[in-house]
Every structure is written in C-alpha cells, then in structure tokens.
Simulated assay, not measured.
Amino acid sequence: MTTDNNAFTGSRRRPWHVLPSSVRAGIEEVLGGRVVGARSQPGGFSDGLAARLELADGRRAFAKAVDAGAAPGVAAFHRREAVVNGALPYGAPVPSLLGSYDDRGWVALVFEDVAGMLPVQPWREDELRRVLDALTGLSESLTPSPGLNCPDVSPRLGGWGRLADSPRSLAKLGVVAAGAARELDRHLALEAELPEAVAGETLTHGDLYPFNVLLTKEHVVVVDWPHAWTGPAYADLVMLLGSVALSGVDPERYAARHPLLRGVDPAAVDVLISAQAGFLLAAACGMDSADAGADPRLERPMTELGLASLRWLSLRGGR
C-alpha cells in the first residue's frame, strides 16, 4: 500500500485572506493581536480555514473557521468541538482552546499552536508505537468521561443496515467491496450487537485516524474532537488500528499485546471493527452524504479505510 498524507487531505481549504474581514477581526480579538502570516494545513476533509497563524508579536496559533451557511454540518461540528475541548481535563494530550468566534454566519475556533507533524503514511514502526503507547494514557485521563454540556452524539460506527436498505448503495458496495457484499448477513449480525459493544465510561475521540494526530518531539497530540462519545476505553485503539491495516501491516500483532485490549472479549472487538468498516463503506457508497460532505476526494480514502478494517477482521479469523 502506498498511501501518503495527501491522500487524507480535503480539497476545499480557504486561505486566511479570503475570510470576511469581520471573521478575521474576530479571530484577532480572541488572540489579542494582529495576524501577519497564515499557512494552510493538510489533514482532514472539512471546508473552510485550517491554518497556522503568526502574530505581529511573534506568537503563533492555529485557527479553523467555516461559513455556516455553506457548510452547516461542519459549523455544527465546530460548535460541538468548542464544548468538548472546554471539558477536557488539564494535562490531556490535546491542544488548548484559546477561544472562539461565532456570529451565526461564521464559526471559528482558535487553539494553541502545536509544533508537530502528521504521522508518515504508510505507518512507520517507531511512530506507530509512540501513538499506540500514548493511547493508554489518553484513555486513562478521560476515564470516567468528563461531563459535556452538549447533547450526546452517536458514534461514527455502523452502516450495514442502511446499506442493506438501499438497492443503489448495495449495488455500489458489490463493486467497491464485493467480499463485504457477500458477507452482508454476517456484518448485519455483528451490527446487531453494537449497542452492547459501545457501552463504557471513557470519552473516546471517535474519529481517530492518522490525520487527527500530531507528533512533536516529546508528545503525541490528538486534535479535532467534535465526534467524541462515551464508550469503551479501547474504541479509539481499534479505530486507529484499522489505518494500520491500510499500511499493509497486520494490526493484530499490536492489538494482541496492547494493554487496552487485555481481557477484552475478542467478539466485542470484532463488532467494532465491522462497525467501523460499515460506517466508512456506507459513507463511500453515498448513504451518509450529510456527514461526509460533497468533497469528491472522500470516497476513495473512506473506501480504502473500510476495506482495510475488513482485512483486519478476516485476519483475526473469528478469534
């Protein structure tokens, strides 16, 4: 597999200078200084601004902003992320939220700048081990889940039932994932067990793929928290290991010795792996357009990630 970070980057970033002057002024008010430089950042798929900012006094920050009228779903994510980040405990490996701007037309979040880089894809052994080790500490810091002053969201898991109910999407599934289409009954049976499998008391990130991880010299920092939900401590680990399969590596050799999976029923892990693939393939087949957005570059990486999870599930062999 020859994926790279560019394969997991949206195509609709807006540069700083095209933002409305009121939005730029609002971000500068949060920062208490004038922005003199901005550099768009790779990773993720959302519309709008995602840039590292340099201020006249030498300080740096990271800002994301979106036009709520053009992308209401992304704006809702930004608003929820502000609430989630505000509730995360001090010391958690996440960027500090410095403030937000919301005029109901535009929503902007301003974070401390993290001097880090995305993990290299395909995964490098040393970087993967750093991230997997960090997930243990992350889950410990978020158990029990801190209270969030916002509605709960459903985990981004599951989709086999929706695929089965749509002849158009089911036909597309037969093209992009013929093996999954043949084993649909198995995945529907696993999906029926999802409510029990997602029970837990840990705040999980809910979208933990390489494009939401930054590596600094000393730390592993997890960014973009709008999809956080409360569930089992190992849920994020299972999600991340799906991307390991995308690199052509058997994730099971990491899963088998990871402390977060020690004593966990293998059947519950199978349910999560299948549900992860179901969500991704349902999105790729057009079922979740409101969630996935209209970026044409989404279909391929979602399909590849979904297929990677299915390869891992097959390698587990019904453990």
Rank of each mutant, 00 (worst) to 15 (best):
residue 89 P to W: 01
residue 91 G to Q: 02
residue 97 L to M: 09
residue 99 G to Y: 10
residue 99 G to K: 13
residue 100 S to D: 14
residue 101 Y to D: 06
residue 102 D to A: 02
residue 103 D to N: 04
residue 104 R to S: 15
residue 104 R to K: 13
residue 105 G to L: 08
residue 105 G to F: 09
residue 106 W to M: 08
residue 107 V to Y: 04
residue 108 A to I: 01
residue 109 L to E: 02
residue 109 L to W: 01
residue 111 F to Q: 02
residue 113 D to Y: 12
residue 113 D to N: 13
residue 114 V to G: 05
residue 115 A to N: 14
residue 116 G to C: 07
residue 116 G to N: 09
residue 117 M to W: 13
residue 117 M to C: 11
residue 118 L to M: 05
residue 118 L to W: 03
residue 119 P to W: 00
residue 120 V to C: 08
residue 120 V to P: 08
residue 120 V to W: 07
residue 125 E to H: 13
residue 127 E to N: 05
residue 127 E to S: 07
residue 128 L to T: 01
residue 130 R to V: 04
residue 131 V to R: 04
residue 135 L to T: 02
residue 137 G to L: 00
residue 140 E to A: 13
residue 141 S to K: 14
residue 141 S to L: 12
residue 142 L to K: 00
residue 144 P to C: 02
residue 146 P to S: 10
residue 146 P to V: 10
residue 148 L to N: 10
residue 148 L to T: 10
residue 148 L to K: 06
residue 149 N to R: 13
residue 149 N to F: 10
residue 150 C to Q: 10
residue 154 S to F: 10
residue 156 R to V: 08
residue 157 L to F: 03
residue 157 L to G: 01
residue 159 G to D: 09
residue 161 G to T: 10
residue 161 G to E: 09
residue 165 D to S: 15
residue 166 S to Y: 06
residue 167 P to G: 08
residue 169 S to D: 14
residue 172 K to C: 13
residue 172 K to H: 13
